[in-house]
Design a protein around this nucleic acid. Structure first.
Lengths: 202, 202
DNA sequence: ATTTTAATGTACGATATTTGTATATTTTAT
DNA sequence: ATAAAATATACAAATATCGTACATTAAAAT
């Protein structure tokens, strides 16, 4: 007789405790530095309970990252729904991006880019592509509405966005900034404001 | 033929690099979480060089803590030398204490109190006693000058200060505050302002 | 009250990481 | 060219972490 496969998932206090504390710990110290036992201690649960909900630390990290990503995209979509100018929206998005990465420590960022755990790296790539797709869509719409220069090819924008991602991962470039946030902020800034339709350009 | 025992210590770039980066890493993550290799990588030195200057991580940590303590005491003494009212000085000291612990992460604090490495704990105790002694002295002086209530026994103040230290280490008390800083701030506040001479009291 | 279920604590072998040192190589200054 | 200082690499020994098994306790359901 095997054990039941169905586990009542959410709304569980222990479960939420686990997710929340690991979220905080990961944010402050990255994934590598945090041990399962530390998470359990901090969350006030036993190790066995941990392994009931998550196969291992990586799975938990993936879940947490998912949460972060989805939360961010939710905010992004809400901003895009607003009825202000495209320029204002972009401004807000940049600000949002900046603020949301503000608690993300250098070590967390490094865990995700420099010495990434294989699985996590894949997840991050997925997230990146998804967000690119969605943003691209919005950009195309904006272009049609004349809020962006018409003479920029969507493909160019796509590769430029990828370039930004790569640049953000370049440690030589990173060295020029005291925090990853600064670099990312700068890059997105250049990206968005650099391609904003000049009022005199067709 | 043994190697020379004398090593030219300071002003060395590598040496300073080592001390500074470890200071930063310790502050952000505590001692336990940081490995020697990580320090070396971050500082851009080899492990061999590390072990030339410091016997091990603990010794380095002790050195760094020493530096922090001495720097703090220097600031304290400078404040005490000023020619304002005792009340104002205390205010400044509290502020200084608060600010100096502001970069000290929760994890660093925990390393020093909750699960302390034996040697480090001893050092911290020493620091604590030294500072108590010095502060006590200043308090006695202030008492003589009538800036503090005369009817408080120095011994009481001594034990009260110890009590503060203990309270700061009590994790049940800590839970009431989001950061250790807040708790410490509160405690010192109560201590200093609670015993400040009421203008109507002899 | 008794049974089921869920959570915990302890212990443990298997891995993985970290430590501190030895050795050979490279760099720097003289 | 030579000596002194720093580095890279490799490594055994010590530690830490992982994931699981088992016995125990706590809570919930019957």
């Amino acid at each position: 007789m095997k054990k039941k496969e169905i586990i009542k998932l959410p709304e569980n206090t222990k479960y939420e405790q686990l997710v929340n504390t690991s979220y905080n710990l990961f944010m402050r110290h990255g994934i590598k530095r945090i041990s399962v036992e530390e998470i359990c201690q901090e969350a006030g649960i036993s190790k066995m309970t941990f392994y009931k909900y998550f196969k291992n630390k990586i799975e938990l990290a993936k879940f947490v990252l998912n949460k972060i990503f989805n939360d961010q995209m939710k905010v992004y979509r809400n901003i895009m729904k607003e009825k202000t100018s495209f320029e204002k929206k972009i401004e807000k998005v940049i600000l949002m991006k900046h603020e949301s990465t503000e608690f993300i420590s250098k070590e967390f960022f490094n865990d995700l880019t420099k010495n990434p755990i294989e699985e996590i790296a894949g997840l991050m790539k997925q997230f990146h592509e998804d967000s690119i797709k969605e943003i691209m869509n919005d950009l195309k719409k904006a272009q049609k509405k004349g809020e962006l220069r018409k003479n920029i090819k969507p493909d160019f924008i796509f590769y430029f966005l990828n370039g930004i991602q790569l640049m953000a991962e370049d440690e030589n470039l990173s060295k020029l900034y005291s925090t990853p946030n600064e670099l990312i902020m700068e890059l997105t800034n250049v990206f968005f404001y650099g391609i904003l339709s000049n009022k005199n350009v067709t």
